[in-house]
Design a protein around this nucleic acid. Structure first.
Length: 271
DNA sequence: AGGGCCTCCTGAGAGC
DNA sequence: TGCTCTCAGGAGGCCC
């Protein structure tokens, strides 16, 4: 399940294979993703790819004619393959390059997206209202405190709110709150600047570490070479409800918050 | 306005 | 063994 580190690892993996390449074809085998893949995506045919970027969990493939926006959803992955590689189940889209290779999009659950947008991308409704990148200076304790002022909702829900900070999904929200010693249900507006400072540092540290290790592999994530990441064994709380806390030995609690599984240590994490 | 719930989908795993 | 049920989850969209 790609979160920001997985998308970043994917970007780093596919980017060298795409930049400066000319697109020969775009093959859409199954357009039924989160939104129907529009035919206008084929405007990329004949274009040369200028660069590949990431914004939040979106991958942006830049050309002079427009931008392809790719979201991996829950179960999507991108791989670089020889163009004659046999198609497998859930291989929905091929971006065929003039050099005989293909960028192949596979997504069993089809929660992902493949869209086309013409400049400037900041005007795209999916991208225009996003908060700061968690690894940028724009995400800092002062900014976070300002966003959380008077907010009564749980800090975990705020961490996962793309308007406040992008790219922090369920796994890393659980892990960062554990590392910062903050209870996931703590009222966001009540957390003082000292604790927010720790939280911001932990979010950055955990995401950076996950990227360095190639992302988290839980079920189906692989990088552009089809290799898994190695972060899963580093998780302290996610997926460990009912097991013992790695810090104090107390049993970890598991609750639902915003319909998402939330795991925490009632001893180590406080309001 | 802000918050909360619903929804899309498939595969894994549990339960019978 | 083989069915059926439940759950997982990003994030837009809708409703109150």
């Amino acid at each position: 399940m790609p979160e920001l580190p997985e998308v970043e690892v994917t970007k780093q993996g596919v980017s060298p294979h795409l930049v400066d390449q000319t697109v020969r074809d775009l093959v859409i085998r199954n357009a039924s993703l989160r939104w129907p893949v529009p035919d206008i995506c084929k405007n990329i045919i004949g274009q040369t790819i200028k660069q590949v970027r990431r914004r939040a969990k979106y991958l942006l493939i830049d050309t002079d004619a427009g931008i392809t926006i790719v979201h991996l959803g829950m179960s999507g992955s991108l791989r670089i393959l020889p163009a004659n590689t046999p198609v497998e189940k859930h291989d929905h889209i091929d971006l065929v390059l003039e050099n005989g290779r293909v960028l192949r999009y596979n997504d069993p659950r089809r929660f992902g997206a493949w869209l086309w947008y013409e400049l400037p991308e900041d005007g795209h409704p999916l991208l225009s209202k996003l908060g700061p990148e968690p690894l940028s200076d724009g995400f800092n304790p002062q900014q976070l405190q300002q966003e959380l002022t008077n907010k009564k909702k749980a800090i975990k829900l705020c961490l996962m709110d793309n308007h406040i900070v992008v790219g922090v999904g369920n796994i890393y929200a659980n892990e960062a709150l554990f590392a910062a010693g903050i209870h996931p249900q703590a009222a966001a507006g009540n957390i003082d600047i000292d604790r927010l400072t720790i939280l911001v540092a932990e979010v950055k540290q955990i995401l950076a570490q996950a990227i360095k290790q190639g992302g988290t592999t839980l079920k189906d994530f692989t990088n552009a070479d089809g290799k898994p990441g190695y972060f899963a064994q580093k998780l302290h709380v996610y997926g460990r409800g009912g097991e013992t806390c790695t810090a104090c030995g107390n049993l970890l609690s598991e609750i639902k918050l915003g319909q998402r599984t939330t795991v925490f240590c009632g001893v180590c994490q406080s309001h």
